[in-house]
């Protein structure tokens, strides 16, 4: 049974009691909450996920609850506990989903040191991965979302999970966090896309979440072989410009933009080296999402033909 198919009252009850397990592929997260609205939000943005056995082993448990004491009532807040400990600042009570999503990112980024974690979006086509490392203002999430809606399989919009050894990319599939203008851009690009409600007052502006497609959820245990690394840069009203990037430079930029490169040491060096060696590396400037998606498709086909 999918989460979208569970009766709202039932889901609320499970969230409050034994929790709801979310299988993202490379990790499983158990979510607990006494906030009733959260169940409805999950039914939208996690709609394609199976309501998997909550008792099955999870990698981390997060609890979203109403703040204690005065803050329960006065300028009410919600807080997030990660394995029983409060490691993030509380959020206003009307933004439970952004807090949950950012909290889950933090929890996963600190617990998966068995892999190299790049700060990147990852999509796949024909078994080959496109890694889109995040630079400030790059529009990584928007481009990743557009690719996911444009014939590519979504692995993650935030984490490039690189397996030690063969450097294959592992899915860590979660809703794509869209901000401000991107929300409209994606909605225009694909009117059928399921986007959750907008949360206007977060510290990153307005945030909304794109639910992953059901087919992508089904494929979340399927890795992808490295093939293409694209450093995107959004330039409003600009055309598409593609520049090859020397591999050593790509290595350096990926290492700097990683959650745990420093921690994993030699295994990370080897895995990143293998990822870069096996991939064509480019910088991509774009102003139009559709054209960017097309160009990336061509680059991927070229990389696949060579490799």
């Amino acid at each position: 049974m999918l989460i979208a198919e569970v009766a709202p009252a039932q889901l609320r009850g499970e969230l409050a009691a034994c929790g709801v397990a979310i299988d993202c592929g490379a990790a499983r997260v158990r979510v607990h909450s006494d906030v009733p609205e959260l169940a409805d939000l999950l039914r939208v943005v996690y709609r394609g996920y199976e309501r998997s056995d909550a008792a099955g082993a999870c990698d981390v448990a997060v609890r979203l609850r109403r703040a204690r004491g005065l803050r329960r009532w006065v300028r009410a807040q919600v807080e997030l506990l990660i394995d029983g400990s409060r490691e993030m600042e509380p959020f206003p009570a009307d933004t439970p989903l952004p807090l949950l999503e950012w909290g889950m990112n933090y929890a996963l980024a600190t617990r998966l040191n068995c892999h190299l974690l790049l700060h990147a979006g990852v999509v796949e086509r024909n078994g080959r991965a496109v890694v889109l490392p995040a630079m400030p203002g790059a529009g990584k999430s928007t481009l990743t979302a557009a690719l996911a809606l444009g014939g590519f399989r979504l692995l993650s919009d935030e984490f490039g999970v690189v397996r030690f050894g063969d450097a294959h990319l592992l899915p860590l599939l979660r809703p794509v966090a869209l901000k401000n203008e991107s929300i409209d851009a994606i909605a225009r690009l694909s009117p059928d896309a399921v986007i959750g409600p907008r949360f206007p007052k977060t510290h990153k502006g307005t945030v909304a979440h794109l639910a992953p497609a059901v087919e992508h959820v089904h494929a979340r245990h399927t890795p992808a072989a490295p093939a293409l690394i694209v450093f995107p840069r959004f330039v409003a009203a600009g055309g598409v410009e593609i520049q090859p990037l020397p591999r050593a430079r790509a290595f350096a930029r990926l290492a700097v933009n990683s959650f745990n490169y420093e921690i994993v040491g030699p295994d990370g060096f080897d895995a990143l080296g293998r990822l870069v060696a096996a991939s064509d590396c480019y910088e991509l400037r774009y102003g139009d999402l559709t054209r960017a998606v097309q160009h990336i498709g061509r680059l991927l086909d070229a990389a696949a033909a060579r490799g």
């Binding site: 020397p246 591999r247 050593a248 430079r249 290595f251 350096a252 290492a255 420093e262 040491g265 030699p266 060096f269 080897d270 080296g273 870069v276 060696a277």
Partner: peptide, 24 residues
């Protein structure tokens, strides 16, 4: 001991086994 080198053609990336830095 433990130095690793990645050959990317014109440039090389080297693993420093003491500091774990990567050098170009």
């Amino acid at each position: 001991a433990g130095v690793r080198v990645l050959d990317f053609g014109d440039e090389f990336v080297v693993f420093n086994p003491l500091s774990w830095d990567a050098h170009l």
